[in-house]
Nucleic acid binder design. Structure first.
Lengths: 233, 233
DNA sequence: CAGTGGTCTAGACCACAGG
DNA sequence: CTGTGGTCTAGACCACTGG
């Protein structure tokens, strides 16, 4: 049995995938080390390393120094979701994007918000409520708190034509953040704005971003009924 | 100003990140090419490449041959979610895992299901309903269809002690799949099983996996009220 | 056409962790 | 202690694509 030679890391990856899918290498199995595979595949070890590292990143392999590389027992599926600016998300689908500012004011936030953002409970933050539309239909309601001590320029911005969603990305980059996905029942207000029955089950995204140790903004996006986000595995 | 020398790709990445966050390199800016950066950083071009490629993968840089590397204008946040087996998900939180099979039968599926799975509309599939519990409280309801033509062994499995969620990962690996997240209102049955009011807003995950051209399984996981999935950005 | 990123190579050293 | 993966290097060629 002549194993053909592989010329690039993707073909090496494909071959490894083939062996896993064909159960030639079963979950839990120890596979040959990089040096041996490089020899077998007729390529440099670096190339094998690149292929295996990529598979390990996607959760299909478990690699440990000295212990070697094993086919993952329970391949933790890594679903990578692209969270884009809402405008481009809509425009990429060929729909017309619309935007309406509902409210913009400086306001002392609820305790839960100041706590999550690590801001002084008595200090006002900039609060924004806005609606994003796709083909003139409500698409997502944006409920946002902005930390004006970190983003003072936000106080000068009206957010009437450019959404905070977009403005912040441009003028207030963040170093890290958290994101959460959940389901929520439409309140009376939300139902009104999104034009759906009260108590509808709505998909929501919560995001909290930081610039080093200071919170930049906290936002909840509540989507139209039936909204889903999808990706491939 | 002496730029210190950087000895590994992560320190190079950190330095690039620092320049982006400090707005020394602003969104849209063209940054120096790999060769120049390698010279400046006192390392091999390969090392710079590794650092920049990693940042491009995470959406922070846009790289194009000949056009060079730019700081992404709208950093598409890539949220990577780890979708593990439900049992380990619960156990990793230090909770007690429980499992109850509710129903297991061969059944001709609704048209929507056979269409999505590309199976013959008249052929029965294996249908499973089961409940996952955390600390004896309902955690997630699993509604599943298994293609017995692809996974004949499933017909011999009772799924009384091992959930299909886990069994399939072990005995029926997939080559690719799709996953979607959405909100759904609890039906009467779902409310009963999950012990929550009818019409509650519930978070749900739909997954459809394939072994090459044949569908393996289609599953909907409906979670307890208040459930959310979170990750860092 | 020419500049950029993408990749491969052969060899080397190192960090980690299993036994 | 030793085998494994993790990484760096210097140099080379290639693929793509902007101008």
């Amino acid at each position: 049995m002549n194993t053909p030679t592989f010329r690039n890391w993707q073909s090496v990856q494909d071959e490894v995938l083939r062996r896993i899918h064909s159960r030639e290498w079963k979950p839990g199995d120890l596979i040959p080390n990089e040096t041996d595979l490089a020899l077998e595949f007729g390529c440099a070890r670096t190339t094998v390393n690149r292929a295996l590292r990529s598979l390990a990143d996607s959760g299909l392999l478990d690699r440990r120094r000295k212990a070697g590389t094993r086919v993952a027992l329970q391949p933790v599926a890594k679903a990578t979701l692209d969270i884009a600016v809402i405008r481009t998300e809509i425009e990429d689908r060929g729909q017309k994007y619309g935007y309406q500012l509902i409210e913009r004011r400086e306001l002392v936030p609820p305790i839960a918000v100041s706590a999550a953002m690590s801001t002084d409970a008595k200090e006002p933050l900039l609060h924004i409520r806005a609606l994003h539309l796709a083909n003139d239909a409500p698409y997502a309601l944006e409920l946002r708190w902005i930390n004006p001590y970190v983003v003072p320029d936000a106080l000068k911005e009206s957010f009437k034509s450019m959404s905070a969603n977009e403005w912040l990305l441009k003028y207030a980059p963040y170093t890290h953040g958290e994101i959460a996905f959940c389901a929520t029942a439409a309140t009376r207000d939300e139902a009104l704005v999104l034009n759906c029955p009260e108590q509808s089950a709505l998909f929501a995204i919560d995001r909290l971003t930081w610039d080093n140790d200071a919170s930049v903004t906290k936002v909840r996006l509540i989507f139209e009924p039936g909204h889903q986000i999808r990706t491939v595995l």
